[in-house]
Design a protein around this nucleic acid. Structure first.
Lengths: 341, 341
DNA sequence: CTCCGTCTCTGAACCGGTTTAGAGTTTGAC
DNA sequence: GTCAAACTCTAAACCGGTTCAGAGACGGAG
């Protein structure tokens, strides 16, 4: 271990021949310091390689300079989901330049979840949290509000919320997929949906049904828990029907990939016999055979926007709801005209 | 915002009619407090819902009660890699019970990386870090040692290191894959490898070559950057050869999946024309068609072990190198006998 | 020349814990 | 009965910043 005695603000003050307080003022760029004195202090500080102790700062100003992301999914689901890593990268893009830090906490939904939030806040470990994977009537909104900490929600909650929401209109993405398939001539499309208890699952389903109705398309919806295994199961169920759909719109890429595997295993050729669209535009999708048509949302941009909004919220000004650019449909080889067209 | 005035240790002391110091002693279970006094103090503290301020504790004891994980890959690669989320889940398993917290920092390799570490440490944000994705002659080991912070390395570095290493013998996993293919009758196997600058890429390659030599198999190695795109490219190159291999051992699942896509796009049937094995045993692999034979490492267990080792290191006792159970080969449908066998 | 306002800077309190020196009280040995 | 050791507890210093009240110097207005 190296010598652990870093210079403190008192050292700088002594060497610059001023008081601690003045050094603090100079360092924080506050008024009331003579220009040449300020310069001298800054020079001494730089020369000594001084950097303020975050811990001391944290204690005196009452901020943690950190924000939290509680992941309320089982690790298996997280691992399979390309959304989180990209999202986190976006958050980091923003945090790294503002000296904030992201603390991650995993919690399985249910019993552990509330404790995790309470623990994070009780310790004043974080100044704010990002609420992801909103559920219907999500209790976390009230919980976090009660705990008195800043937050942003990913998507608009269906309960009263004092927090800024940062949203992507994923319904628009689903609509793009349905329109694309309808344009190709499909008239019988299924949706392998997320759980209706989750808001983004629900909104995608609603968008699917609305778009299908608009285009006069026969639609059916198979709910899942968003996992690849459940996506595979739902796909089998759909294809077992007397008149199976000619296209399936999946609510995420994992399920789409699993569904593609199932279809192929049954001897179907995609897209000749069945068209498939995903959601998220995971990198791996473009390397599959056939390459997956998918809805691309900018997860990284979303993360950056959420981080910015949270930063704003923790430092006072609460911004209003923030909407991000609509998703785009990346058309690849997994969609084509229906068999009978 | 709710009322933010939590009880402090002084409040507890006043109400219990003792001094701050004694409360601190009682709370931390230190000797020198009369049993009935201790009990009274604890009762008062519990009654007031007191929980110590982590910030104040942090300042006075000089610990952050947090550890860091710097991810030195580009976000795209992270997003595609199932390893990290599982690993992080394992770390959390351990941290959550010990009141530690995981702070995540993203850094692109090269210029930013050193700054990221320095920043994390300069702020004394963390008590230790987990070094992942070790490279050949990795400068981070010396850097972190110089910064005077605890650390564990994932795998044994090839430079002198004062840190505990937590390793999985991935070479054993590769060997299993080669043996499996050899048993099936393959005599010409390729390895789509990670970059030789990365230690785990290198060790897998070495294990591949050793195992192939042992079984008298013709082997070739195609280096990549671990990305799906590069895996696809390498696959194409291999299959373009005059005498293409009859099996390919990939250094991770992403590349295997991309390689599978490429092979299929060329009209090959897997495993009839080409056998394929992956590494990591990503959940999605079992849903592909054909389901992917892959080497399973326990990423979550690895994370937990690393967290335990790091905890031990930050609290004094340095443990010796820790080895985890060998990986297992999960045989599925992407491997079979070679065409001419 | 005096008075007041402004600017610069100092000293000390404060955030909320931990830790140490030592004061006061018991206890036990002789 | 006296003295030392053991035990319980207090007071204050300390971690390293921020912030506020006010001291002192200086300039301009009257």
């Amino acid at each position: 271990m190296t010598n652990d005695t870093r210079p403190t603000i008192a050292d700088v003050a002594r060497r610059a021949g001023v008081s601690k307080g003045l050094v603090s003022f100079a360092l924080n760029g506050r008024a009331g310091v003579a220009p040449d004195t300020r310069e001298r202090i800054l020079a001494v500080a730089a020369d000594m390689g001084f950097s303020p102790s975050l811990r001391a700062r944290s204690l005196s100003v009452g901020r943690a300079f950190a924000c939290g992301l509680v992941i309320g999914r089982s690790p298996d689901v997280i691992a399979a989901d390309p959304f989180f890593p990209s999202f986190i990268a976006g958050v980091e893009d923003e945090f790294s330049v503002s000296g904030q830090v992201l603390v991650l906490a995993a919690a399985t939904p249910g019993r552990h979840e509330e404790e995790t939030y309470r623990g994070l806040v009780a310790d004043r470990r974080v100044d704010g949290v990002i609420l992801s994977d909103l559920r219907a009537g999500d209790p976390r909104v009230a919980l976090v509000a009660e705990l008195g900490i800043a937050a942003v929600t990913l998507g608009a909650p269906d309960v009263d919320s004092p927090f800024t929401s940062v949203s992507v209109d994923d319904g628009a993405g689903i609509r793009l997929a349905v329109d694309h398939l309808a344009d190709l001539g499909h008239t019988d499309i299924a949706h392998v949906a997320g759980p209706s208890a989750m808001l983004h699952g629900r909104s995608r389903t609603a968008a699917f049904e609305a778009a299908a109705a608009e285009r006069g398309i026969r639609s059916r919806v198979a709910p899942t828990d968003f996992s690849a295994a459940d996506g595979a199961r739902a796909t089998d169920a759909l294809l077992d029907a007397d008149v199976p759909p000619t296209a399936i719109v999946y609510s995420n890429d994992n399920m789409a990939i699993a569904g593609l595997g199932r279809a192929q295993r049954r001897g179907l050729v995609v897209p000749r016999d069945l068209s498939i669209t995903g959601f998220d535009d995971a990198e791996i999708g473009r390397h599959l055979f056939p390459a997956l048509t998918s809805v691309a949302t900018d997860a990284r941009g979303w993360g950056a926007a959420a981080a910015r909004a949270l930063l704003a919220a923790t430092t006072g000004g609460a911004a209003e709801a923030l909407a991000l650019p609509d998703p785009r449909l990346i058309v690849r080889a997994s969609t084509g005209a229906p068999p009978t067209a």
